[in-house]
Nucleic acid binder design. Structure first.
Lengths: 182, 182
DNA sequence: AATTGCATGTAAGGGGTTACATGATTCT
DNA sequence: AGAATCATGTAACCCCTTACATGCAATT
């Protein structure tokens, strides 16, 4: 039982209000992207399963386009709360970049420089988005009271991405030196 | 083709010298644990597959205990180098802690404090191990010339774990305040 | 008229963990 | 003698991504 957290992402998002599977996916892609991801292949079957378990309700729109709006039930809220109380499982991270850095001796220094620079760029871009998201959140008057919690989540991303970028800077310097040594 | 990087971990480690599957697992568990993981269920079948593909050779020990020592072939080295040159794929990270922080409104503040403190503790311990590993590396005379590269990998862990711990400190303060507000 | 976005869903297949099975060797 | 560690391997099972299929609605 490594995971099975898809259900809790769904339940959690539905506490903010009813949504479709498509909406949920969008929110995850945009707001959660730096710490979470889900695919339709996980989401849609799970929405069905949660409906069967009565943790959420499904309402199919009458008329033209098929659209299913899901809402959380009291049982769903209880299940979410139960999970929230459970200890966080040890996450298994996998950094391909570090693997390559570890084996850097088997390739050229320029290859590694490219990898580190690419890593730096993507995370610098990510940081920009996080900063934008932070500003956006701070500007709008608090409609929901989870604002402050979300800011903490964003702060995590900012700190960690900052650390990544720092490391990349140092490592690029190191690689530059290494190159001239050889 | 999300992954399939197990093979390159094996090839990479075997560049340092011949090893058994058991050895490889140990090295990954101890030295790579903060950025990589592998299970026997992945390792052993992959060792067989790599042997079939002639990227590594297998030598079974004669006598008592069954032990298979693997060594990299020139083709294996070439395959590794080829992979090293390929761009690093976007890693998909999943932080259950952040998911819970995002939905913190649905539970008690003390619950979140526990989670954050646990996260802080495990990574503080991890940081100690990383510092030890760094000292150890710096103390022994460089037998292999990959020392400096490995130090860079360790530095990544130190920086990122430092960022985690920082964030935990801030977040614990935030949660403390939040608790007294309510 | 065509493209993009909205919207739901399934099937196949790969990646990965866990649990189990088996047995030798070394340490206490 | 018993426990821990060395050592290899398999099978079941789950999680997850990718690719595909389908079709409506809004935009350009």
């Amino acid at each position: 039982m490594r995971s099975g957290k898809t259900q809790y992402v769904i339940l959690g998002l539905l506490t903010e209000g009813p949504m479709s599977g498509y909406d949920i996916k969008k929110v995850i892609d945009i707001r959660f992207s730096f710490f979470w991801n889900e695919s339709y292949g996980q989401l849609y079957p799970m929405l069905k399963a949660l409906t069967d378990k009565k943790l959420i309700t499904a309402e199919r729109s009458s008329g033209g386009r098929t659209k299913v709006t899901y809402a959380i039930t009291p049982q769903g809220r209880a299940a979410l709360k139960e999970w929230l109380a459970k200890p966080v499982e040890k996450e298994t991270v996998r950094f391909e970049l570090l693997l390559k850095m570890y084996f850097a001796g088997e390739t050229e220094t320029d290859v590694m420089k490219r990898h580190v620079r690419a890593f730096m760029d993507t995370h610098a871009q990510g940081l920009v988005l996080l900063n934008l998201f932070e500003q956006e959140l701070k500007s709008i008057v608090r409609e929901h009271d989870n604002h402050a919690d979300v800011l903490r989540v964003i702060a995590f991303g900012q700190k960690v991405y900052g650390a990544y970028i720092d490391w990349c800077g140092e490592t690029l310097d190191y690689l530059e030196e290494k190159k001239h040594e050889a």
